[in-house]
């Protein structure tokens, strides 16, 4: 694979990054945090995978009550929110603040749609007789997807904060990196769902 790393010179002073590596502290911190999050979600996913194969005593198996078309749509919504997020960042980097705000709000709305879908999914599962305490699989399933949902919710809160900051003129182009960092978090939450969608929903022996 060709490496297309841009070997740019040290960023000019106006960006305000004067660090040993020339990288921004905040972005580095975010990547370190995301590296750490890999082990969090890895743990939850593997607990689910291990418990999915155990026989259930009571209640249905999770895989029996999946609503794949519904989950596919909400997965698609979350996937597209990554696009709007990156468009918001591109907007603010260009100095197009109005458009950036629109995309930020769109991203938050798509995220909220996803969370709403998850709430609907949970309630319908409970109606089908699969509560949190019903069996091993249900605990593992709700914990994994619930953790992800909480992450999305935190992302939405951060996006709405960005929107408010921008509305009040506190998010000038020089601070585009703040959007980028929230965006990194958002995309990470998205890639985690890419994993969950495949290994939890689509592959079930």
């Amino acid at each position: 694979m060709t490496d297309t790393i841009v070997h740019a010179p040290i960023p000019d002073q106006s960006e305000g990054h004067h660090t040993s590596t020339g990288l921004s502290n905040e972005k580095l911190a975010m990547w370190a945090f995301l590296g750490s999050e890999c082990l969090l979600f890895g743990g939850l996913i593997s607990v689910f995978l291990i418990y999915r194969n155990k026989p259930v005593g009571v209640g249905p198996k999770v895989s029996q009550i999946y609503d794949i078309p519904f989950t596919s749509v909400s997965s698609f919504v979350l996937l597209m929110s990554s696009l709007t997020m990156v468009l918001a960042l591109a907007g603010i980097q260009r100095g197009d603040h109005r458009r950036a705000r629109i995309w930020i709000l769109t991203t938050a709305a798509l995220g909220a749609t996803f969370v709403a879908g998850q709430v609907y999914e949970f309630t319908s599962f409970v109606r089908e007789g699969l509560g949190y305490t019903t069996n091993l699989q249900s605990s593992a399933f709700y914990t994994l997807t619930g953790f992800h949902g909480v992450h999305v919710t935190i992302g939405i809160i951060m996006l709405l904060s960005l929107y408010t900051l921008s509305l009040r003129g506190n998010l000038p182009t020089e601070k585009a990196e703040t959007v980028e960092i929230v965006g990194l978090y958002w995309h990470f939450v998205d890639v985690v769902w890419i994993l969950i969608f495949t290994v939890v929903y689509l592959i079930h022996p």
Binding site: T4, L28, C38
Partner: peptide, 23 residues
């Protein structure tokens, strides 16, 4: 998503290494 939307394709190798170490 990681390479394009998270800009790992264009950004420092260090970020990629942090993420890959975790993964």
């Amino acid at each position: 998503v990681a390479l394009w939307f998270m800009h790992l394709r264009f950004d420092s190798l260090l970020f990629r290494r942090f993420f890959l170490t975790g993964i």
